[in-house]
Measured scan of single mutants.
Amino acid sequence: QLRFETNGEEQAKKVLEEAKKHNLEAHVTIENGKWVVHVK
């Protein structure tokens, strides 16, 4: 499982879109005010 700390909602959405293009499972959590994308 990969973990990407992003700078906010915009970047998190871009990472999610990329993951979906590659048929990867991804979800976002907010940790300590940071948007974190988890990709399987």
Results as ranks from 00 to 15, higher is better:
residue 1 Q to W: 15
residue 1 Q to L: 14
residue 1 Q to Y: 15
residue 2 L to S: 08
residue 2 L to H: 10
residue 2 L to Y: 13
residue 2 L to E: 05
residue 2 L to M: 13
residue 3 R to T: 08
residue 3 R to I: 10
residue 3 R to E: 04
residue 4 F to W: 09
residue 4 F to H: 04
residue 4 F to Y: 12
residue 4 F to M: 04
residue 4 F to V: 11
residue 5 E to A: 05
residue 5 E to N: 05
residue 5 E to F: 10
residue 5 E to T: 08
residue 6 T to Q: 03
residue 6 T to A: 11
residue 6 T to N: 03
residue 6 T to S: 05
residue 8 G to H: 12
residue 8 G to Y: 13
residue 9 E to W: 15
residue 9 E to A: 10
residue 9 E to D: 05
residue 10 E to A: 12
residue 10 E to L: 09
residue 10 E to W: 12
residue 11 Q to Y: 09
residue 11 Q to K: 04
residue 11 Q to I: 07
residue 12 A to M: 07
residue 12 A to G: 02
residue 12 A to F: 03
residue 13 K to L: 14
residue 13 K to V: 09
residue 13 K to G: 07
residue 13 K to H: 11
residue 13 K to T: 10
residue 13 K to E: 07
residue 14 K to N: 07
residue 14 K to G: 06
residue 14 K to P: 02
residue 15 V to P: 00
residue 15 V to L: 15
residue 15 V to A: 07
residue 15 V to W: 14
residue 15 V to E: 03
residue 16 L to Q: 06
residue 16 L to D: 01
residue 17 E to T: 08
residue 17 E to D: 12
residue 18 E to P: 00
residue 18 E to A: 14
residue 18 E to W: 15
residue 18 E to G: 07
residue 18 E to I: 15
residue 18 E to Q: 13
residue 19 A to D: 00
residue 19 A to G: 01
residue 19 A to S: 04
residue 20 K to A: 13
residue 20 K to D: 04
residue 21 K to Y: 09
residue 21 K to R: 12
residue 22 H to N: 12
residue 22 H to E: 05
residue 22 H to G: 05
residue 23 N to E: 06
residue 23 N to A: 08
residue 23 N to R: 09
residue 24 L to P: 03
residue 24 L to E: 02
residue 24 L to D: 02
residue 24 L to M: 11
residue 24 L to Y: 10
residue 24 L to N: 03
residue 24 L to G: 03
residue 25 E to S: 11
residue 25 E to F: 11
residue 25 E to V: 13
residue 25 E to Y: 12
residue 25 E to P: 07
residue 25 E to M: 11
residue 26 A to S: 05
residue 26 A to R: 00
residue 26 A to T: 07
residue 27 H to G: 04
residue 27 H to M: 10
residue 27 H to R: 09
residue 27 H to T: 13
residue 27 H to S: 11
residue 27 H to I: 12
residue 28 V to P: 01
residue 28 V to G: 02
residue 29 T to S: 11
residue 29 T to F: 08
residue 29 T to H: 07
residue 29 T to C: 11
residue 29 T to R: 06
residue 30 I to K: 09
residue 30 I to E: 07
residue 31 E to A: 04
residue 31 E to I: 08
residue 31 E to W: 06
residue 31 E to K: 04
residue 31 E to Q: 07
residue 32 N to P: 00
residue 32 N to W: 03
residue 32 N to F: 07
residue 32 N to T: 02
residue 32 N to K: 06
residue 32 N to S: 06
residue 32 N to M: 06
residue 33 G to V: 00
residue 33 G to L: 03
residue 33 G to K: 02
residue 33 G to H: 03
residue 33 G to F: 02
residue 34 K to W: 06
residue 34 K to H: 08
residue 34 K to I: 14
residue 34 K to G: 03
residue 34 K to M: 13
residue 34 K to T: 09
residue 35 W to G: 00
residue 35 W to P: 01
residue 36 V to Q: 02
residue 36 V to F: 06
residue 36 V to I: 14
residue 36 V to Y: 09
residue 36 V to W: 05
residue 38 H to E: 05
residue 38 H to T: 15
residue 38 H to I: 15
residue 39 V to E: 01
residue 39 V to F: 10
residue 39 V to S: 01
residue 39 V to L: 10
residue 39 V to A: 02
residue 40 K to F: 15
residue 40 K to W: 15
